[in-house]
């Protein structure tokens, strides 16, 4: 049911402000980005139409794009593990303690509300070597060889360090969602399983996880989308890392567009990010929702 007759002007009054701002700033630029991606353009001179050449170049002649894509995939898998898997474990932990749940939940959530810039600065200090940061001084006390683990400048470690910090920041966000979902599991389901003699682990695995399955899939898609476009943490923490060992797609797009002034080429990378996100999310949903 809707209220009375509404003339066009009333509807316009309510919807126009949001509609106009949103269209101008979100919708139209997407179209422009797709258009730019077909041109060779530095922003000042004339635009030269090159068709799909930018995309062909990305996959055939660009030495940084494919490694960046590879790093992004690794980064995304790490985020699924940290945010979805660990997040789910934390939600189980919360729901299995009898008291103080909201106390723990509120404090676990703290990293989510802190800015990425602050988190990165803090971790830069924690992982520092000169002067010795907290993490290495603790590790070094256990084994002196660990005093000089170069978390942020070692070619093999910097991508992992950035992935860890990103996971650390957002983990609790998914924990909160899983926790709410776990609370929605009806008591009679778990009671029935208990009467059948199932232990806590079996109840979690055979009753609760299947029940909240759609939340798990939805969260995976959210994490997938979030990490395929991850920008601030990898950029701020590693700046691409030595020899671009931690370069991801979004910072790479940024670099092409705003440092090298290749707006057309940068737009092609941006369009690829959207396409990859859509493909991954669709494939993921297909695989996991088909069985329902």
């Amino acid at each position: 049911m809707k209220i009375g007759k509404n003339n066009f002007k009333t509807v316009l009054f309510f919807t126009a402000p949001a509609l106009i701002i949103y269209t101008l700033i979100v919708f139209i630029p997407i179209i422009w980005s797709s258009v730019y991606s077909l041109f060779d353009w530095n922003g000042i001179g004339s635009m030269k139409f090159v068709g799909f050449n930018n995309f062909v170049r990305l996959f055939t002649r660009d030495r940084e794009f494919l490694p960046a894509l590879g790093h992004t995939v690794i980064y995304t898998v790490a985020q699924i593990v940290l945010q979805v898997f660990v997040g789910l474990l934390l939600a189980f932990l919360l729901s299995s303690i009898p008291k103080l749940r909201s106390f723990f939940q509120t404090l676990y959530y703290v990293p989510v509300v802190i800015s990425s810039v602050a988190i990165c600065q803090i971790f830069e200090k924690l992982m520092s070597l000169q002067p010795l940061g907290l993490i290495n001084s603790i590790l070094g006390a256990i084994n002196p060889a660990w005093y000089d683990i170069k978390w942020l400048t070692d070619v093999n470690l910097c991508l992992g360090s950035a992935a860890f910090v990103e996971g650390y920041k957002y983990m609790a966000m998914y924990m909160v969602i899983f926790y709410a979902a776990l609370l929605s599991v009806p008591d009679d389901l778990t009671e029935a399983a208990k009467i059948d003699g199932a232990n806590g682990f079996r109840i979690a695995w055979n009753v609760k996880i299947p029940y909240i399955r759609h939340v798990i899939v939805a969260n995976c898609v959210l994490v997938l989308n979030g990490s395929l476009r991850a920008y601030d943490i990898p950029y701020l923490l590693t700046g691409g890392g030595p020899g671009n060992c931690a370069q991801l797609l979004s910072p790479y797009m940024y670099k092409q567009a705003f440092s090298s002034m290749k707006y057309g080429y940068g737009s092609a990378v941006a369009v690829m990010i959207v396409l990859i996100s859509l493909v991954f999310a669709t494939v993921f949903r297909r695989i996991f929702e088909r069985e329902d």
Binding site: I25, F27, S33, Y36, R229, Y231, A257
Partner: peptide, 19 residues
Amino acid sequence: YFLMGLMIPLQVCLIPLYL
């Protein structure tokens, strides 16, 4: 139309907006 925005990475809009 509004919810579509949830799927759009803001990086796509960055270059056209900047220009």
